[in-house]
């Protein structure tokens, strides 16, 4: 099927089989930041924004995004690098495989929550798994980035 979408502020026409998920379509079209970590919508690695809201692209059928806005980390590089700098300074980047999805969730959280507490942050990010860091360094980075004491 042909779908028309805006990806990272560019209009695109994509061919996607009716049973293909957005994550596979995006990778097929070269948005290689999008990673797959599970097959069950459990890990958060494939997070992109759909109309500005974080979604698991492994659980969204491509045909359902016709006419909508997709943002991947390729589209928000400046902002992503600002946060990544905090993450890397904590040493909390580690293998990096979960980072694009994680960063997309962090940036969405920044837009959605004002003055979040530590508890709010942990709750918002619960769906983003990481096996390397034990989450503590990520939390330190977020708190510094958001200026949360």
């Amino acid at each position: 099927m042909q779908i028309k979408v805006t990806i990272n502020e560019k209009m695109m026409e994509l061919e996607a089989p009716y049973d293909e998920f957005l994550m596979d379509t995006l990778r097929r079209y070269g948005f290689l930041s999008v990673k797959k970590g599970c097959n069950t919508g459990s890990c958060g690695l494939c997070t992109v924004w759909l109309d500005g809201k974080p979604v698991l692209s492994c659980s969204v059928l491509s045909v359902r995004v016709n006419g909508r806005n997709i943002t991947t980390i390729e589209g928000v590089q400046k902002e992503a690098r600002e946060f990544a700098d905090f993450l890397v300074k904590e040493g909390a980047d580690q293998c990096g495989f979960c980072s694009p999805g994680f960063i997309m969730t962090v940036l969405a959280m920044k837009r959605e929550l004002s003055n979040p507490t530590e508890e709010d942050i942990i709750h918002y990010l619960t769906g983003n798994l990481c096996r390397c860091t034990g989450y503590q360094g990520q939390l330190r980075a977020i708190k510094k980035y958001l200026g949360v004491v």
Binding site: S33, A80, G96, S99, I103
Partner: peptide, 16 residues
Amino acid sequence: QPISKIDGMDITTGKP
């Protein structure tokens, strides 16, 4: 010294 990982910025921001 707590030096940042040399590949950190690129792997975290989605480089292929």
